[in-house]
Design a protein around this nucleic acid. Structure first.
Lengths: 101, 101
DNA sequence: ACGCAAGTTTCACTTTAGTGAAACAATGTT
DNA sequence: AACATTGTTTCACTAAAGTGAAACTTGCGT
């Protein structure tokens, strides 16, 4: 059977693991207004909240776990239409975006 | 000298002009949950609010008016990073996006 | 320590955004 | 009508996203 979703990483832990501690050049560069950085984290968090594995999510959306991994880690910049598909088909939610002037 | 920005089109007028009246297949298809549809309109509106021509905006962002036209009309799906550049450099604003579960 | 499940990375290929120039169309001004 | 401004479209090319398969890595559980 499936193992329970015990240890859900905090946002900070996730960032630290993947991008280093706050204050390091790598991390700072990524966080400097780079919206894409946030996308991967949002997706990662949403997936954990729903208790899905990358593979399960991929199946719902109609893609592969390797692609999910890449966008969660911001290795590839997913399109808006792709993000929408993931959020809708994968989580039953929706994407929202707006321009703040 | 530059002509005053007299006739700012309403959102509905803009949509009607570019995609047809509400109820037509073309318009309905585009509006059916297609976030990209909204992007072009948001960008168009923001540009008019700032009183910029496509060419002026393009110069600020470092691209051409032909590209601006394409994304306002959703002919090309701009990347998130590109949208950010436009909103920041062109309008001095920022893009916001979130996942609603 | 082994084996399984979950996630990451690499390789290779297709599609599409990003881009500019230039032609074209539409709209407004005198 | 002629002209100027603004916006759209086409053509063509380059870089990067989108994608899958499969190999590889990293825990976790017994």
């Amino acid at each position: 059977m499936k193992t329970k979703n015990k240890n859900v990483m905090t946002l900070e832990e996730f960032k630290e693991k993947n991008y280093g501690k706050r204050g390091t050049k790598k991390r700072d560069e990524l966080e400097a207004g780079y919206e894409n950085f946030k996308i991967g984290v949002l997706l990662h968090q949403a997936r954990l909240e729903k208790g899905l594995t990358q593979e399960e999510l991929a199946a719902k959306v109609g893609t592969t776990k390797s692609y999910i991994s890449k966008i969660e880690n911001n290795i590839k910049e997913a399109r808006i239409s792709t993000l929408q598909k993931i959020v809708e088909l994968g989580f039953g939610g929706h994407l929202e975006l707006s321009i703040k002037l």
